[in-house]
Amino acid sequence: MKRTLSLLLALLPAAAAHEVVSYGTVSAEFHTDAGEGLRTGDDTLVGYRLTVAGKVIAPEACRCQLLLYPGKPSARVMPHVIELSPGFDDPQAAEGWVKVEAPGTYTLVLAGKPAHPGAFDPFRIEHVLNTKENTP
């Protein structure tokens, strides 16, 4: 019993680290493979799981685009467009690789509309990430 409780407590911080951001009835749970940040000078896997009115929707049900801006989103800055594919561990998620060279703050912007009109309202959700130091 103690071992099970210890294991659960060890897993809770990782599960709680995922950030959920909402726009109307649409919510996105963002995650990275770098402890909810971005590694500098190396590829970082970023992804999201989308829910509408509390129900998880498949990536193909949304015409979504995931953009990465250095700092805050701006019309003057060309974002990095992240090429998305179904999640490896979670087919209900979408993931893509991104590489940043400079330390700092970055903003993920998830913009989308339904693949089938009327399924949900178009949305734009922003999520701020910071870079993490690389450790050998």
Rank of each mutant, 00 (worst) to 15 (best):
P122V: 05
K55A: 15
L45G: 03
A111Y: 00
A14M: 12
H116Y: 07
A34C: 10
I125W: 01
A119C: 02
Q65H: 06
E29Q: 14
A15M: 14
P91C: 08
F88C: 07
E95Q: 15
L38S: 06
K113V: 13
R124K: 15
L110M: 10
G112Y: 01
T107Q: 05
A58D: 14
L67W: 04
P13Y: 04
A115Y: 05
G112R: 00
V21T: 14
V46F: 05
A115F: 08
L108Q: 05
A94I: 02
M78I: 15
V128Q: 14
P91S: 13
G104C: 06
H31G: 12
G96Q: 05
Y106V: 03
Y23F: 13
F123Q: 02
A34N: 08
A119V: 04
L11Q: 09
A28Q: 03
L66I: 09
L50E: 00
G112H: 00
A94W: 01
P122F: 05
T107S: 09
H127C: 15
D33Y: 11
G112D: 00
A14R: 07
G71T: 09
P103K: 01
A14E: 07
L68T: 08
D89P: 00
V21K: 13
P13R: 04
C64L: 10
L11P: 01
W97C: 01
F30D: 04
V81S: 13
K113Y: 05
F123Y: 12
L12E: 05
A102S: 12
L11K: 08
P73A: 02
G24P: 06
V81A: 14
T44N: 07
V56T: 14
G104D: 03
E95I: 10
D33G: 13
